[in-house]
Amino acid sequence: MALGNRYKTAPGAGTLAAFVLVLVFGSPWYSDWVDDNTDPETAGGWWLRLLSWPRWRFDASDSLRDVIVGDLKAILLVVLTALFLYLLPGSQLARARGTISQFFAGWAAYIFAGGFAALLATLFLSNPSLLSAFRAAGAGAGYGLFVGWIVGLASLGGWRGTR
């Protein structure tokens, strides 16, 4: 028996899409590849580099604090996406599965999550400033704007979570 959309919730599917985006495109392997093999002055190169925005890294020589703070942006992006997908009313109040409100709720959740994740992660860095926090939030929201449609598509067609 196939487990189709019958068991898919909109927030769950959107969170899974965000997790996969961060896991794959934020990985050190993808980040190194995109830096070495793309031209940021072309649309394709810009897009591929944008996908790697929530970069995460881990190294055995790093302390646990350095790993957590360094990867906080990627962790918060997934956690806040899940939170905003549950809080935004589009996916919960939609009368029918697959409505456009689910798509926009997923997209908006990723924009908000990107902005807030960058803002909060910047505050944990050494010598944070309000200007650097604002710049980071703008970069995170920009990432969410151009990549969040993927999360919106993933949440499209899911159940509201309760029947």
Rank of each mutant, 00 (worst) to 15 (best):
S31W: 08
I68A: 15
A105V: 10
A74C: 11
V20S: 07
I111T: 01
L130V: 13
V147Y: 00
F104Q: 02
K73A: 12
L153K: 05
L23F: 14
L87Y: 03
A141G: 09
G152W: 01
W159N: 15
G161P: 06
P11D: 00
R49V: 06
P11G: 00
G152H: 02
V22N: 02
G44W: 15
P128L: 02
A137F: 10
A43C: 09
L76Q: 03
L87T: 05
L131G: 10
G44C: 08
K73T: 05
W159V: 12
S31P: 02
S63N: 06
T99S: 11
F103R: 03
Q92E: 08
S132G: 11
L93W: 09
E41F: 15
G115D: 06
Y30I: 00
A94W: 00
P54K: 05
F103K: 01
R55N: 14
W107H: 07
D32A: 13
L48R: 08
V24L: 14
G115W: 00
A43E: 13
W53Q: 13
R95C: 04
L72E: 04
G158T: 09
G148W: 01
D71M: 12
W56K: 05
V22M: 10
W56Q: 05
A136V: 01
K73N: 12
L80Q: 01
R55S: 13
Y30T: 02
F104I: 15
G45A: 11
R55I: 09
G152K: 00
P128N: 01
V20Q: 07
F58Y: 15
G14H: 03
Q102W: 01
T15S: 13
A10E: 01
G148E: 00
W47A: 13
G115E: 05
L77M: 14
F58W: 15
G14Q: 01
A18I: 02
R97S: 05
A118D: 10
N5V: 13
W159R: 14
R163N: 12
G161I: 09
G142M: 11
W47R: 14
D36W: 10
G158Q: 02
S129E: 09
T99R: 09
P28T: 07
L156S: 05
A74H: 00
V79P: 05
F124L: 14
L131D: 13
G138N: 10
Y7W: 15
S61C: 06
K8P: 00
P11Q: 01
T9L: 02
P40E: 14
D66T: 11
Y7K: 09
G138E: 11
L48T: 02
P128G: 03
R95S: 11
Q102D: 04
T162D: 10
I75G: 10
Y86N: 12
G140P: 05
L51F: 09
S126K: 12
V147R: 01
I111F: 01
A113Q: 04
T122H: 10
F25K: 08
L156T: 13
R97P: 04
R49M: 12
V22S: 07
R163P: 14
Y143W: 12
L51G: 06
L153A: 14
A136R: 02
Y86T: 07
R65Y: 10
L131Q: 13
P54Y: 02
A2I: 15
L77V: 08
V69M: 07
A60L: 15
K73R: 15
I75P: 01
L145E: 03
F146C: 09
Y30D: 06
G70T: 03
S101A: 14
L23R: 03
W46F: 15
G45I: 09
